[in-house]
Amino acid sequence: MMNELALGFSVAALAKGVIITLVVTLASSLVAIVLGLIVGLIRISLLWPLRWFGVAYIEFFRGTSMLVQVYWWFFVLPIFGVALSPWTVAIFGIGMNVSGYGAELVRAAIQGVDRGQYEASIALNLPRLTAMRRIFLPQAIRAMLPAWGNLLIDLLKSTSLIFFITITELTTASKLAADATGNYLLFFAVALFGYYVIARALITPLVRWLERRFSRGFVREAQA
């Protein structure tokens, strides 16, 4: 009887943990994508102060530990009078860290666009920003999507770190459930497959869909 009750509570807590992991993954992915795109573009700006800022941003967020960064936002910033909620820290702490890697993907993909495309844009007198938006970015996005897929799967798995700032996400919930019921095999198996299923059912199809969308004209396909 006692055992069943514990099991019931544990399953409910686990379901909540899954939802929290999903929400944090989604929100911090958005932060990572938006900031990664902005910083990646800034990183190759013609203006050196912007470029310099981009380099500093990437070096900081990519070069130091994600957990230590999260600790800074959560435990150190309050010393300076800035108290952030665990949710804000989770979403922006993870998102900004990953955006450092993302910015490098953006930079590399844009610089990897064929030189002929730049030359054609100059020959057609396209303004730099228009050329970036209409010509280079669509081609760069297609090239960087597989790498972003990897990065977002990695981000998903990094969300377990927010246990350290008091949020009970999937890994924590599994551990608590396992502790409460003594069934370590079951609950850690659930956690193991839980991440896999989220990655496989959400991130991979999303990236595949985007890849198809941005591949118009790159792959020979039947005439519509």
Binding site: D114, A120, A123, L126, P127, P138, G217
Partner: peptide
């Protein structure tokens, strides 16, 4: 005042022939 045609075409691969030809006239 100058237009150029390249050895390796340099068409925009993600745009149709028509889109290739209207992009710059519209935005420039």
């Amino acid at each position: 005042k100058i237009g150029m045609v390249f050895q390796h075409f340099n068409l925009f691969p993600h745009m149709t022939a028509l889109q290739n030809c209207v992009e710059a006239p519209i935005s420039v």
